Simulated assay, not measured.
Amino acid sequence: MSARNDHTEAAAAAASADAEEKDVKIPVEAADEATGAAETEAAQAVEAAETAEEQEVPAMTEEEMVEAAIRAGEEAANDDFKVKYEQVANELAEVRAELEAAADAQKEAEAKATEAADRATRLQADWENYRRRTAAERLAEQARATEKLVTALLPVVDDIERAIDHARTQELADDFKQFVDGVDAVHAKLMGVFEHEGVEVIDPKGEAFDPLEHQAVGRVEDVEAYDETVHDVYQKGYRMGDRILRSAMVTVTYGGAKRPAPAEEPAEAEASEDTEE
């Protein structure tokens, strides 16, 4: 504040000196005007000095300068950190967006791969089913063809057997007997082919009558045989696997005792005992 007063007084003194100089130079009649102008200039000088003092930056101590430098450094560092942080944040956002896009692409690819694997599995299963079905159809067609051929040959076999049986009951010359033996060998060879193809002969003479395999064409009274026993076989039957190609034509006895129930197998007997327990 004292410096300000000194400066003001100096400005006033300078203004007074200027006024005195003017008083010397100007005439006496203009003294009043000169005095007023000098006062105005002094006032303006004082006001300018005060404005300069107000605008003058006060002097800073060393500590204040250090603190100001530190603050300036911190502000610069903060600004630099903010810029770098914003850059890193933007890069991180971009990387996260790319990662999310990659994750979505991976999920889509995995879904497509799963769908393709399922489709391949279904196709493989369809192929296996088709292969088994066609193989079964081929076997069934082969079996049907064999059945047709065997069924067509059965009357021929019957004629050969009847001819052989008739020839065996006659007194024949040696040459004709050799011929009959040759026919019998052909019949045996034909039956061997049938056996190779899974054809079995149904010749149930003396067995229990089975309506699923036998065709009864007559009844014969026989008290010595069990009731419903096959007495005579007029025509042999044939089966192939679980199919009956031709039922055997038989006669069935009656008047005898009832046939006893077949004995149970050991395994079946044990199972029935366990069930009772």
Rank of each mutant, 00 (worst) to 15 (best):
M1N: 12
A3G: 08
D6Y: 05
H7N: 13
T8W: 01
A12M: 13
A14Q: 09
A15C: 03
A15D: 05
D18T: 10
A19S: 04
A19L: 11
K22N: 04
K25L: 14
V28W: 05
V28D: 10
A30Q: 13
A31F: 08
E33M: 13
E33I: 11
A34I: 07
G36L: 13
A37K: 07
A37N: 04
A38F: 07
E39G: 02
T40D: 13
A42E: 03
Q44I: 11
A45C: 08
A49E: 02
A49T: 00
E50F: 04
T51A: 15
E53C: 04
V57H: 06
P58G: 10
T61Q: 06
E62K: 09
E64K: 09
A68H: 10
I70L: 10
E74I: 10
D80T: 12
F81I: 07
K82R: 13
V83E: 15
Y85W: 05
Y85M: 14
A89Y: 06
N90D: 15
N90E: 14
L92W: 04
E94F: 03
V95Y: 04
L99Y: 10
A101H: 06
A105F: 02
E110I: 03
A111S: 10
T114R: 14
E115S: 12
A117S: 09
A117F: 08
R122H: 04
R122F: 03
Q124A: 15
D126N: 08
W127L: 15
R132P: 01
T134E: 14
A136E: 13
A136C: 01
R138W: 05
L139E: 14
T146G: 02
L149R: 11
L149M: 13
V150I: 08
V150L: 03
T151L: 12
D158N: 11
I160D: 02
E161K: 04
R162N: 10
R162L: 05
I164V: 09
D165W: 00
D165N: 07
D165V: 02
R168I: 00
T169Y: 02
Q170I: 06
E171K: 05
A173T: 04
A173M: 10
D174C: 01
D174Y: 06
D175G: 06
K177F: 01
V180T: 00
D181W: 00
D184C: 05
A185T: 08
V186Q: 07
H187E: 12
A188V: 07
L190S: 01
M191P: 02
G192Y: 00
F194I: 01
E195C: 03
E197I: 04
G206K: 03
E207Q: 14
E207D: 14
A208R: 05
F209Y: 15
Q215T: 08
A216I: 14
V217S: 13
G218A: 07
G218C: 06
V220Q: 09
E224Q: 11
A225K: 03
Y226W: 14
D227R: 00
D227K: 04
E228G: 02
D232R: 13
D232F: 07
V233P: 01
Y234D: 09
Q235K: 11
R239C: 02
D242K: 03
D242P: 00
R243M: 10
R243E: 14
L245H: 03
R246F: 00
S247D: 06
A248G: 07
M249K: 14
V250E: 02
T253Y: 00
K258R: 08
P262I: 05
E265I: 02
P266N: 12
A267G: 03
E270Y: 07
T275L: 15
E276L: 10
E276G: 06
